[in-house]
């Protein structure tokens, strides 16, 4: 519409547009300044990553042959398995499917996730069911009476 039709002096239109723009961007900026801290608040601060690269998972003699135990490794569970021949193996106990905690099945001689029936062999390889990847393996050392599990560097 021609500004003259509304009885406004010529040139009023651009300044009106400027005012709308300034007001609009001011309102948007203030909304953004309210939302930003709120969104940052919703995301929790990162946890201090556990620095320990190794942990005492169990004592020698705690585990019988052909059995397993879940231990705390930093903020995650790990699983220590004693094979039928007495060897030790350790893996993360977090299933690669949907993060349930796995367990050792003495009857199957495999590592089993009960949540969706996933199976891993004793090398941590996903052999059946939904898990898409093998379990990450840890190193096991015997130091005196302690069975020490450590992340490989």
């Amino acid at each position: 519409m021609d500004p003259a039709d509304r009885g406004q002096p010529e040139g009023a239109q651009p300044s009106r547009r400027w005012i709308s723009l300034l007001l609009g961007s001011g309102v948007l900026a203030s909304i953004a300044s309210f939302l930003y801290p709120a969104i940052r608040y919703i995301i929790p601060p990162p946890l201090a990553e556990s620095s320990s690269r190794s942990v005492v998972a169990a004592k020698v003699g705690d585990l019988k042959n052909n059995s397993g135990v879940v231990f705390k490794f930093g903020s995650e569970p790990g699983i220590l398995v004693r094979l039928a021949d007495g060897q030790y193996r350790a893996f993360t106990a977090v299933c690669t499917h949907l993060s349930c905690t796995v367990q050792y099945r003495a009857d199957l001689r495999e590592i089993w996730c009960p949540c969706h029936n996933g199976l891993y062999d004793l090398a941590g390889r996903n052999v059946s069911g939904p898990p898409p990847r093998p379990l990450q393996a840890y190193e096991v050392h015997i130091q005196g009476e302690d069975i020490v599990v450590s992340r490989s560097a």
Partner: peptide, 10 residues
Amino acid sequence: DAFAPAPAGI
């Protein structure tokens, strides 16, 4: 218990 295996039949 975050450091116990998931129970069977879950």
